[in-house]
Design a protein around this nucleic acid. Sequence first.
DNA 1: TAAATTTTTTAGGTTTGCCTAAAAATTAAT
DNA 2: ATTAATTTTTAGGCAAACCTAAAAAATTTA
Lengths: 221, 221
Amino acid sequence: MPPNYSVSEENYIKSIHYLQQVNEAVSTSALAEHLNAKPASITEMLKKLQAKGLLLYNPYKTFRLSKEGNKVALIIIRRHRLWEFFLVDKLQFSWEEVHEVAEELEHVRSKKLIDKLDAFLSYPKFDPHGDPIPDANGKINIQQQLPLSRLPLNKQAVITAVQDQSSELLSFLSSLNIVIGTRLEIKRRLAFDNSLEIKCRNKQAVNISEQVAKAIQVNPL
Amino acid sequence: MPPNYSVSEENYIKSIHYLQQVNEAVSTSALAEHLNAKPASITEMLKKLQAKGLLLYNPYKTFRLSKEGNKVALIIIRRHRLWEFFLVDKLQFSWEEVHEVAEELEHVRSKKLIDKLDAFLSYPKFDPHGDPIPDANGKINIQQQLPLSRLPLNKQAVITAVQDQSSELLSFLSSLNIVIGTRLEIKRRLAFDNSLEIKCRNKQAVNISEQVAKAIQVNPL
DNA sequence: TAAATTTTTTAGGTTTGCCTAAAAATTAAT
DNA sequence: ATTAATTTTTAGGCAAACCTAAAAAATTTA
Ligand SMILES: [Mn+2]
Ligand SMILES: [Mn+2]
Ligand SMILES: [Mn+2]
Ligand SMILES: [Mn+2]
């Protein structure tokens, strides 16, 4: 029987996993920022996670999840994203509302529950933000994906994910009818601010900033 | 915005509510037993709940939920029973398995989540054990109900609930094909141990003990 | 390379929720 | 009505997670 971790431990593991993706080396202060806690609290938890074999930790230097820690992270991410899918697909929550509720639901620790939920939802591959859902073994099905900011001019692509999950950005994109699955291409790139003019099939071209373009992941066709 | 209560506080409130149903006056030791905690811990929490206006408490005597405390209890019970219904009806959990998982899910505090779940499930009136589900205002639709042990001889009745939710009892009843909705009558009552001989439509009569009969709630026709 | 700055850890508190053991109040038995 | 037994509360601790302030280490700047 795999050990169970506290809600706090799970949130730390998930945040460390997230920061590792973005930027290999994780620092105490970055994690403190991300978890809205003070660095002193982080250090304490790092020692606890290391003692439990979830973390490889060099005091005063950096740290990263161990193999076991990574496995745990993927289980939590699986729970989070399956619940998000459920909330949108079955309960008619909107895109922007689900994150907060899923943040709580993800801590209900029952493998049977999650595997049955997965089956009930017909084994979805992506959550409502386009992020991939790990399978029951923690495996993620990767697909070619890059930020819209790096898509070549006039190349067709499909939106697969929106990285930043702030309500503001999601609402903005919704208002432009830009959702997961939308097909688009870049018509022009303004050199001086790297903003993009993008065009969806039959729709008018719209302008988006470099920051927004970086947060949108696409799959070139 | 209604205040939020901790998981521990919610479990105390729910247990006090439960013990009040069974036996008006609640004692520290009974609650300690029910919550698997020591009496000293109970006293501490009683003071906290009283300070928050959820409990009417006379030290060294008894206590009961205040009006507000009762309202909170019904919200938690609503969450618990809706999740149980969801687990059985949508995720194909069996009767006996749901309680433990619902015990965790009931603490996800989002009114919107529960009200949308209720709608998704088409506003069920009873949970899988036959217990009534309070509506969004905490109202319970009552129906005439009494323990099978008090049903008169040869009077037809429908099973509406099973009080005790231990896995053992539920499995036992399942094996006898006794479920919520089963119609039955009592053919004989053995005076020396109060065991009952019960008969379901077209089926062979079976014997059940007084304890089991007390745990089964029925609605006389 | 030495000093200044920033980052991280350690030391010492707080709150919540639990515990054991002792004291106080209530209830039951002579 | 005392005394005995039981129940409840109080007192004093402990672990988990958080905090602030001070010390230590690492990094940057001069
Ligand atoms: Mn969370
Ligand atoms: Mn998501
Ligand atoms: Mn519970
Ligand atoms: Mn139930």
